[in-house]
Design a binder for these strands. Structure first.
Length: 303
DNA sequence: ACGCCTACCTGCTTGC
DNA sequence: TGCAAGCAGGTAGGCG
């Protein structure tokens, strides 16, 4: 899906354009998009009349905080997008959920592949990341009869752009794991928000092979990876995200970061650092791109 | 813990 | 041209 930079871009756009807006009605075109509450008619009844207070992000999920404390969560998965459409805009055949706003605009949840999910939660115990700084959600006891918002993110790893994500903390987490770096960077319980694009980019920047075992990194290598992760994510945000086919910001426009990528989807093209042809392998069923010269093969073969 | 598989969906690209 | 296979930014659940 949209990874951290794309979700952050959408969240910032929405904060500017729909904070303060009133949702007067909603229409659900694909029932399974609504995760909670089911059935979708109940979701529509509960969201109608709500005012949007603020829009933020946690991991790869957009958080739409409502005035009464409840939170709409939008997990975009592979092809989800949130787009603000002006009054009278032509209908979108891929809009799975449409929120009608009081001023005539629509907030549309578009999702070609239908993997994304929208939830509505009682709230409490979760602070979203806001504009890039950020804090982790705190774990909240499960309240009956419904889950509380904090539960949704209880299993997530640290936000890589937060203050609390220090080299020391990263080093400790890496040292405890023997998995391959590529797999770990994609593991949301290990670190939140990385996806296939930025994982490959960060490993290239850090000059680390995707198959390196996490617990074999030197201090210097951990430092490089820490910096690389933060840098590729920050650059992604600055360029409004990487677009290939489906991703767009809330303005409906693609991001500019795809042009800047060093390895992702650049198989057989020259490495920007050394000129060697970029290679593509499959790791954990995911396409993985790297430079065979800049990112040397691990000495001991991983299991 | 770790790696691998399948499932969820649709559309686009590639190869015969 | 037509058709089938392969590929895609993500994640959950199951198995060994």
């Amino acid at each position: 899906m949209p990874e951290l930079p794309e979700v952050e871009t959408i969240a910032r756009d929405l904060q500017r354009w729909v904070a303060g807006a009133v949702i007067v009605d909603a229409r659900v075109a694909w029932d399974r998009t609504i995760r909670h509450p089911q059935p979708p008619e109940r979701f529509v009844a509960e969201v109608a009349g709500a005012t949007i207070r603020r829009v933020g992000r946690r991991a790869k999920t957009v958080l739409i905080h409502l005035e009464d404390g409840r939170v709409l969560t939008v997990a975009l998965r592979m092809t989800g997008a949130l787009i603000v459409a002006p009054p009278g805009a032509p209908p979108d055949p891929y809009a799975r959920v449409v929120f009608a706003l009081a001023d005539g605009r629509e907030l549309r949840y578009r999702d070609v592949r239908k993997f994304g999910r929208i939830g509505l939660w009682p709230g409490g115990g979760l602070r979203s990341v806001g504009s890039g700084r950020g804090t982790r959600s705190r774990r909240v006891a499960e309240g009956s009869p419904r889950y509380r918002i904090g539960e949704v993110f209880a299993g997530h790893g640290p936000e890589p752009l937060s203050r609390s994500f220090t080299v020391q903390r990263f080093a400790e987490r890496l040292a405890r794991r023997s998995a391959r770096l590529k797999t770990l960077l994609l593991d949301q319980a290990f670190i939140a928000g990385m996806g296939n694009i930025y994982a490959d980019e960060a490993l290239w920047r850090a000059r680390l092979h995707p198959l390196r075992a996490a617990d074999t990194l030197s201090e210097e290598e951990v430092r490089r990876l820490h910096r690389a992760v933060r840098r590729v994510l920050r650059e992604g945000i600055a360029n409004r995200g990487s677009s290939f086919s489906d991703y767009v910001g809330a303005d409906g426009e693609p991001g500019l970061n795809a042009e800047r990528l060093a390895v992702y989807r650049r198989t057989e093209q020259p490495c920007h650092r050394c000129g060697r042809a970029i290679r593509r392998i499959v790791v954990g069923q995911r396409s993985t791109h790297f430079c065979p010269r800049c990112q040397p093969e691990p000495v001991a073969s991983p299991r």
